[in-house]
């Protein structure tokens, strides 16, 4: 909690303090489809410090999800390096817990509670400990009432809450979120954004968050890494840590600035979601 507060005040100046938690250096990532190579991420470098909330913002198809998948270990790099706490990441692992956009990311055959307990058991935690933590995160995500339900009995927003609780219960070094609120209605989305900010503050979790919503990026994040069109590079890193009230002039002008950054690279404004 204290770290978070200091971040909000000190912004970029903290970069000097120690090694970054996550460092992405000259990452080049793509897919091979039918023997043809498609480069999505051209050359991207950025760093995430402990306790920071970093937003990856960019137009559709700019490779921001691809980048997140690479950080999670689902995809290899063509070139460059990704290091977590100084160590190169090669395989998926619970130290980089992921929350996906899809509602069906919960195991349908397990109750809400077991969806949170089971992954902890997989990483080797004792049952009692796993259950204790599960109760803790159920309460934190306001899920206690739904603990014994099965995922198909939950609304989309509830399912995403469970996914966040599940990921947090693993005590990840960094929480990766791939447009987790992208499929929710506007009302639920803004409520979950507020809750996420609150929970992040209370758990001091480090966050790498992919979004195509400028409003979400400014509202939730500390810094926004803006990517251009594929093969993408970093356009600019914008500090938005002080901005948490959308009614302020500063918030609006930062949004305008990001909008203009994205518009340079994407003539088709329709692809972007402006909130």
């Amino acid at each position: 909690m204290t770290t978070n507060t200091s971040h909000a005040g000190s912004t970029q100046s903290a970069s000097g303090a120690g090694t970054p938690l996550l460092s992405v250096q000259h990452a080049k990532i793509g897919y091979v489809v039918n023997r043809e190579t498609h480069v999505a991420v051209g050359d991207v470098s950025f760093e995430v410090r402990q306790g920071e909330k970093i937003m990856l913002l960019g137009p559709s198809g700019c490779g921001k999800s691809t980048l997140l998948k690479a950080v999670a270990g689902f995809l290899g790099l063509f070139d460059g390096q990704i290091r977590l706490a100084g160590r190169e990441t090669l395989k998926p692992g619970p130290d980089r817990a992921v929350v996906f956009q899809e509602f069906d990311q919960l195991f349908p055959w397990k109750t809400v509670r077991d969806n949170i307990v089971h992954p902890q058991r997989v990483i080797g935690r004792a049952r009692s400990e796993a259950e204790r933590r599960s109760d803790e995160y159920l309460e934190l995500m306001k899920l206690t009432q739904a603990a014994d339900r099965y995922p198909h009995q939950l609304s989309g927003g509830m399912k995403q809450r469970v996914a966040i609780a599940r990921a947090l219960a693993l005590d990840p070094m960094i929480l990766l979120m791939d447009e987790p609120f992208g499929a929710l209605d506007a009302q639920t989305r803004s409520r979950l954004q507020r809750e996420l900010i609150d929970v992040a503050a209370r758990t001091n979790v480090t966050l790498l968050f992919v979004t195509h919503s400028i409003q979400e990026a400014v509202y939730v994040g500390d810094r926004v890494v803006v990517l251009g069109n594929a093969p993408s590079t970093v356009q600019e890193v914008v500090d938005v840590s002080a901005l948490d009230d959308p009614s302020t002039l500063e918030f609006t002008s930062t949004q305008e600035h990001l909008r203009s950054l994205l518009a340079i690279d994407d003539d088709e404004l329709g692809n972007l979601a402006f909130e």
């Binding site: 270990g73 992921v98 195991f107 693993l170």
Partner: peptide
């Protein structure tokens, strides 16, 4: 099997037979 579930399985560290037992089998039930 839903690829997202497989990704979740791998994310929490399942692979090989444990992934089959933990995700493939119940998902294909």
């Amino acid at each position: 099997v839903n690829p997202t579930l497989l990704a979740v399985g791998r994310n929490i560290g399942l692979s090989g037979w444990r992934l089959v037992r933990g995700v493939y089998l119940p998902a294909a039930l």
